[in-house]
Design a protein around this nucleic acid. Structure first.
Lengths: 350, 350
DNA sequence: CACGAAGATGAAAGCGCATACATAGAAACG
DNA sequence: CGTTTCTATGTATGCGCTTTCATCTTCGTG
């Protein structure tokens, strides 16, 4: 027979007072066992006799008991929480990676504490501190350049960390990404190989995009292209931004001669470029070629289809999750730094 | 004079053992005060004398102490955690809303526990339970149709809840969204008003999209359009999906006569439709018109520009955050249900 | 049939903080 | 000056778990 608490007033919208707190103690009393036994029933049912187990399960069902993970984490020093910091969740390159990362970890019982940090290092440091206060079992950081304080906090906390979406020889702990300068150079070499003589790079303002741009510009000139290659842009990537940057280039006569190519730091900017070029009746790639970066879904669907650079976001998210899981498990991952690389995708626009 | 722990071995990558745990006790000893005083110094510095405060701050800086929010939450019964469940974080309609929602709450010191639930109610229930175990101070749920168990758990936990992106007369607690049937009807009325006689609805498989489609189909016929209106699609929204669904319609002769319009459950599907129509050389809106839903950035940039329905994601995220904050503050929000509405955006494609 | 092993359970301690209550000294007041 | 009122601090307690460690049965085995 199940003891029931006295009738509660129905939950009003005025003051939704939570019912009397149910704890393992409550459940245990109802099932005629002690609190520890309830704990064991939940964490390792094999340690409890079948009859006891079923009585406990009944009591749980009857009370609607949900264990308090805060208390559990405090006692066990395992929070089953993974913290993730990305510059922007509305940007598919990050949200795509995150989706895989989270799915992988959720399957192992972890939950994700997520924050957007923009592209500011001090904001990031503050967010890292806030996240550390929840004692996450591991942390994902985007990029490899952080405030000193961030690095110190992380090292001091001894939390497994994976830095993603970039690569470095001196990771805080683990690192899964690819080389942005190399990606920029690969784009430049592709452009030169295709015979384009004049190039411009339109870019978002974030540091990784700028490094791709700088590497692109340098290599394009080295490889015999006209230099210096103009690099334009400093705002977040948007279609409107891509159009505007392209319009400015065109107004300056960028496409007046032959063999011009516009390389963009993202597919979105590249799409903006295509739109502006179409609006002006300039043939792509005949009059001006365009390359993007990221290989979003629309790249293959645009007209002309967009030549771009593919980064396997799923692989990245999965590798990051695996690396952290290994580290949490106490083992040293075979490699601290994993380069997932990138691939040039040759389509119509360049 | 500051006591220092004996020299630690440098953090190796082999076994990154966390330094000896620093607690308020540690910090207090170093500053010559008790643990409570440290706690007070952090939660309400005005309760501590200036000299003591600065000694404590020094000790904190010297040790790199980061308070344990788990312990704090357990003791105070306030976790400063907000749980958010969305079907998909890679979908801009949800991630856009989330970005605003999180920013608003982060500004008040809350952090966001995020999970993707797909469109499955049982998954959602499991995720809700997992989130409840962290004792969030409030929870955001997408949609208004949930498993019974979900509703019971939430009511039992007495957590403030806001359901977003839909509207209902019987919210679990709070609700901020708009009416999907009304949105579907508005699209139908717009299409009829523009003189289109034949319509099809291409859609993603989620329940809200399907309700818009059903309402569209019904109203379109009611308003004198040809019926029945075909409704096609059951996969997640993608460009490729939009193309394929459109191709199928066209192959069936959908656009053989005059006055045809394809309404889509999302801008992405609509863009797919535009691409397929362009590939077939069919003029939009001359031969076939197209309407989208969502008013994503690309809608205004496509060619032709996309007629669509705008939902103010920022306003939605902000209203949801505000409603929860009010509720957390203990006050009854002036309205339990907030309809943020939607707006038809008349552009070139229809 | 005595004895150790294995199985099932409980008692106690403590994770790191916030909260309530207590205390000591200083300032205010008539 | 005695009494009240702050101000600054400390002590004690407990939030709800996990983790030892201890206890009590129940078997298996030579």
């Amino acid at each position: 027979m199940t003891r029931r608490p006295p009738l509660q007033p129905p939950p009003t919208t005025e003051a939704r007072s939570p019912a009397r707190r149910i704890t393992m103690e409550t459940v245990g009393r109802m099932a005629g066992v002690s609190q520890v036994t309830v704990s064991r029933a939940l964490s390792d049912p094999s340690k409890v006799s079948p009859e006891t187990l079923s009585r406990i399960q009944e009591a749980i069902a009857a009370t609607g008991f949900v264990p308090n993970a805060l208390a559990g984490a405090l006692a066990s020093k395992k929070s089953m929480l993974i913290s993730a910091l990305v510059p922007s969740i509305t940007n598919i390159v990050y949200s795509g990676m995150l989706a895989t990362f989270s799915a992988e970890l959720r399957a192992r019982g972890y939950q994700i504490l997520l924050s957007e940090t923009g592209f500011d290092r001090e904001d990031e440091a503050a967010t890292v501190e806030a996240h550390l206060s929840r004692r996450p079992d591991a942390m994902l950081l985007t990029g490899v350049h952080h405030a000193d304080r961030t690095r110190r906090m992380l090292l001091g906390a001894g939390v497994p960390v994976v830095e993603v979406w970039d690569i470095t020889d001196t990771p805080i702990d683990l690192c899964v990404g690819f080389s942005h300068p190399e990606a920029g150079r690969a784009m430049a070499e592709y452009a030169r190989a295709k015979g384009y003589r004049r190039a411009a790079f339109i870019t978002a303002g974030d540091e990784r995009a700028l490094r791709r741009g700088a590497a692109f510009a340098e290599r394009f000139a080295q490889a015999g292209g006209e230099g210096p290659v103009p690099i334009r842009g400093d705002a977040p990537a948007s279609l409107a931004g891509g159009r505007a940057l392209t319009a400015a280039l065109l107004d300056e006569g960028f496409a007046d001669g032959d063999g011009a190519i516009i390389a963009a730091s993202s597919d979105v900017l590249a799409e903006g470029a295509l739109i502006e070029l179409a609006a002006r009746g300039l043939a792509v790639p005949g009059r001006v070629a365009v390359m993007g970066f990221g290989d979003q879904e629309m790249a293959a669907a645009l007209s002309p289809t967009l030549t771009t650079v593919r980064v396997n976001r799923d692989a990245l998210g999965r590798a990051a999750a695996q690396a952290l899981l290994t580290r949490i498990g106490g083992a040293a991952p075979e490699r601290q730094v994993i380069d997932v690389g990138f691939a040039l995708v040759d389509r119509e626009s360049a």
